[in-house]
Design a protein around this nucleic acid. Structure first.
Length: 598
RNA sequence: GCGCCCGUAGCUCAGUCGGAUAGAGCACGAGCCUUCUAAGCUCGGGGUCGCAGGUUCGAUUCCUGCCGGGCGCGCCA
C-alpha cells in the first residue's frame, strides 16, 4: 500500500442486517429501561454496533456496550452488562441465550426462527436485497477512466474502469442517485503531439521522409490511424500547410481513438452517462470566465508573467500556475473550470477516480472546491494503483515510452471481462495489483473468479436436476425452514444476513474489494456445504446395494451420506435459492455476470 | 530536505467502531471423483502484526519516536 485510504465516510452508519437491527433495538430499549429505573445514568445513548464473535461459544452476536459505558457509569463492566441483561424485555422471544463473558461482553445467541427470517427477507426483496435508502437520493457524480484519447486504453485504465463502475453501482445500491462521467482531455499539448505523430507517420507512408516528433506517440496504432487518414483523405493532406495538416490528422485520430475507447469500454460492460469534453469547456469561454471570477475575488494573481491560483489559502502547500508565461493554460485551469461545472450541476458529492501517481494533486483540487465555497469533503478522490501483469508468475515487461504496453483490450480478449474485473477488484484500489493472466484463465479453485461464479452455477445446476427429477423446488416462504438445524446451514444463513452491511460498508468507504472478499467467503461456505451435505436424496434409479456399499466406503473416509427427507430437500433448496440470490446480487454490483452453467 | 503514506505467515493480501486465543488465498505436505457439476472438498505445518515507548480495563487498530520502503514536491498530463 502506498497511499492513504480515505477514512472519511459520509452518510450515517446503520445496520441493515435484519437480525442485528432487532438485537440492537432490544439492547437500546434495555438501556432506556435501565435509565428510567435509575440503574444506569446513560447520559447519551451510544450508537450500538455488534461484533461477530470468532468462537461459537461466544454466541452469534456480541456487544461491548457495557465495557464502553463502564467508565462513565463508574461501575464494573460486568455489573453494567448484568443490568443491561436484566432489562432486556421479551428476552425469550429473541434469544436462546445471553451470557456475560469476562470483562463485560454480552454474548448473544439468537433464536433460530429469527435467523430463518433472513431467507424470507431475501426472497421477498430479491434483487433488492442489499439495497437501501441510505443516500436518500442524494446526487453523486463519479468520474472515472478519463484517459486521454491519444491511444488505446491500457491495463491500468481497465482497473480504473472496474473500480469506478463498482463504486457507482455500490452507491446506487445504497440509495444515491449516480451519474457516471468520462472527462475527455481533448485539448492541449498531448493532442497536438498526437496530431504531429500521426502526420509524421502519414507522410512516411506516402514516401516523404520526416523526422518524428521528439516526444511523439510511438505505438503501432499511430500507423494504423495514419493509414486510415490516407484511406479517407488520400494524399490531399500533403498539400495542406503543416499546421493545417497536423490539425486534420489530430481530428481524425481523435475521433477514431475515442471511438475505440468507447468500444473497449462497452465490451468491458461499462456505459457512461455523459462524456464531457475539455475542448468544449475552452471553446465556450468557460475557463476564462472562471479564471476572471477567481481574479475578481483575489484568488488569482500575476507573477513572473504567469497566472497563479492562490491554492495555498486553502491548505495546498503552494500556489499553482494556471496560465503559463507563453499564454497557454495549464491542465489545472481546465480542471478548475470542469470541477466548478460539476459543482454547479448540483451534485452533493463528486468522486474522482485517478491514477495513484496523481495523488499530489489532491490538495490542489480540494483547494478548488473550497475556493468555490464548498467543504473539501464534497470531493472524494479514489486512487488506483498500477497493475503488474504476470504470466505464470513471471512479470510481463511493458515500456510505455517505446509504446509497448498491454492494452485493456488484449487482457479482456485473453481472460474475459468477468475475470479481468474480478481481479481488478480483488485488492484495495490504492495498492499495487499483481494480475496473473494464466491464473485468470485457469478453470480451477485457484482462480477466485471461477470459484465464485461456479458457486452460482452449481446452485443453478441443482435446480435443473431437481426439476428433471420432478422434485418440488420451494422458495423460502413455501418451505419448512424449521428443518434447517445443521450448523453449516446456519453458517450460510449468518453470512447471508451480513450481506447488506457489507454493501453498506463497501459503498461508504468506496472500497469494492470488501464485497469481492465477501463473495469469496460466501462461495467457500457454499462449496463446503455442497460437499458435506446432500441437498436431494440419492437418485431413485441408483442401485440401492451400490449406494449402500458407497456409504460404507464413504463413512470409512469420515464422510457421512445423509438421509434427506423430501421436506429437508425443500428446505435446503430454499436455502440454496437465497445463497444464489445473494451471489447474483453481489456479482451484479461488481459488474460481473452470474452464469447459470459453466 | 519537506510532505503524504505503507510495514500483518515463505509469497500476495484481508482485518469496519480499539475487543476475547490475529484471518484468507497461493505455495508446501498428506488425502478425497461409482455422487446433485472435482471449475469442488478435507487435514497439516507455518506469526515478536517492523522496533521502542505512551494512552486504555483492553492496541494489529489511536499517539510519539526510531528503522525500512514507496510516492509527491514541473509554468508536464
Amino acid at each position: 500500500m502506498f497511499f492513504a485510504r480515505q477514512k472519511k465516510e459520509f452518510g450515517q452508519v446503520v445496520s441493515h442486517d435484519i437480525v442485528q437491527e432487532k438485537v440492537i433495538d432490544a439492547l437500546q430499549d434495555a438501556l432506556q429501561e435501565a435509565k428510567r429505573k435509575g440503574q444506569l445514568k446513560v447520559e447519551s445513548i451510544p450508537t450500538l454496533t455488534l461484533d461477530l464473535p470468532k468462537r461459537p461459544e461466544w454466541g452469534d452476536l456480541a456487544s461491548t456496550v457495557a465495557m464502553s459505558l463502564a467508565p462513565s457509569e463508574r461501575r464494573a463492566p460486568y455489573d453494567v452488562a448484568q443490568i443491561i441483561l436484566d432489562n432486556i424485555v421479551r428476552r425469550e422471544a429473541l434469544f436462546d441465550r445471553v451470557e456475560i463473558a469476562r470483562p463485560g461482553f454480552l454474548n448473544m445467541t439468537v433464536k433460530r426462527d429469527l435467523w430463518l427470517q433472513v431467507l424470507a427477507e431475501i426472497e421477498s426483496r430479491g434483487q433488492a436485497y442489499g439495497r437501501m435508502a441510505l443516500g436518500q437520493g442524494r446526487r453523486v457524480l463519479v468520474e472515472y477512466v478519463s484517459a486521454n484519447p491519444t491511444g488505446p486504453l491500457h491495463v491500468g485504465h481497465g482497473r480504473g474502469a472496474a473500480v469506478g463502475q463498482a463504486i457507482a453501482k455500490l452507491l446506487q445500491a445504497t440509495g444515491y442517485e449516480v451519474v457516471q462521467e468520462y472527462y475527455i482531455n481533448d485539448a492541449g499539448r498531448q493532442m497536438k503531439l498526437l496530431g504531429a505523430s500521426v502526420y509524421a507517420k502519414y507522410q512516411e507512408l506516402l514516401g516523404r521522409p520526416v523526422s518524428f516528433p521528439a516526444e511523439g506517440y510511438r505505438g503501432a496504432y499511430i500507423e494504423t490511424v495514419a493509414a486510415h487518414v490516407r484511406e479517407q483523405a488520400g494524399e490531399s493532406v500533403l498539400n495542406l500547410s503543416a499546421e493545417q495538416a497536423e490539425q486534420r490528422c489530430r481530428e481524425l485520430a481523435y475521433r477514431e481513438l475515442l471511438e475505440n475507447i468507447r468500444q473497449d469500454l462497452r465490451a468491458f460492460g461499462i456505459e457512461f452517462d455523459a462524456w464531457f469534453s475539455e475542448a468544449s469547456l475552452l471553446a465556450s469561454g468557460g475557463v476564462e470566465q472562471v479564471l476572471s471570477d477567481l481574479r475578481a475575488r483575489d484568488l488569482l494573481f500575476d507573477q513572473d508573467g504567469a497566472w497563479w491560483f492562490r491554492s495555498s489559502s486553502f491548505g495546498d502547500e503552494k500556489d499553482r500556475v494556471v496560465r503559463k508565461q507563453e499564454g497557454d493554460y495549464t491542465y489545472l485551469a481546465s480542471d478548475i473550470a470542469y470541477h466548478r461545472d460539476k459543482l454547479q450541476r448540483g451534485y452533493d458529492l463528486l468522486i474522482d477516480v485517478w491514477g495513484a501517481d496523481h495523488h499530489g494533486y489532491i490538495p490542489r483540487m480540494e483547494a478548488v472546491v473550497q475556493a468555490y465555497g464548498y467543504p473539501k469533503e464534497r470531493l472524494r478522490v479514489v486512487l488506483v494503483q498500477m497493475v503488474n501483469l504476470l504470466r505464470g508468475g513471471r512479470k510481463v515487461e511493458m515500456s510505455k515510452r517505446a509504446g509497448e504496453f498491454i492494452t485493456m483490450r488484449e487482457v479482456m480478449d485473453e481472460v474475459g471481462a468477468d475475470a479481468a474485473k474480478f481481479f481488478f477488484l480483488m485488492r484495495r484500489s490504492d495498492t499495487h495489483l499483481d494480475f496473473d493472466l494464466e491464473l485468470a484463465k485457469q478453470q480451477s479453485a485457484e482462480n477466485p473468479v471461477y470459484y465464485v461464479q461456479y458457486a452460482h452455477a452449481r446452485i443453478a445446476s441443482l435446480f435443473r436436476v431437481a426439476e428433471e427429477r420432478g422434485l418440488p423446488v420451494p422458495k423460502p416462504s413455501a418451505a419448512d425452514l424449521s428443518l434447517l438445524r445443521d450448523p453449516d446451514e446456519f453458517g450460510l444463513i449468518r453470512k447471508l444476513s451480513a450481506y447488506p452491511s457489507v454493501v453498506q460498508g463497501s459503498a461508504a468507504a468506496l472500497e469494492p474489494h470488501r464485497l469481492t472478499f465477501y463473495l469469496q467467503e460466501l462461495a467457500g461456505l457454499l462449496h463446503t456445504f455442497y460437499f458435506k451435505h446432500r441437498i436431494m436424496p440419492v437418485a431413485a434409479d441408483q442401485d440401492v446395494a451400490e449406494a449402500a456399499a458407497f456409504v460404507k466406503d464413504a463413512s470409512e473416509m469420515g464422510k457421512q451420506r445423509e438421509q434427506v427427507s423430501p421436506d429437508l430437500t425443500g428446505a435446503r433448496l430454499a436455502l440454496m435459492y437465497a445463497v444464489q440470490q445473494v451471489l447474483r446480487n453481489g456479482l451484479g454490483l461488481l459488474g460481473i455476470s452470474a452464469p447459470e452453467r459453466m
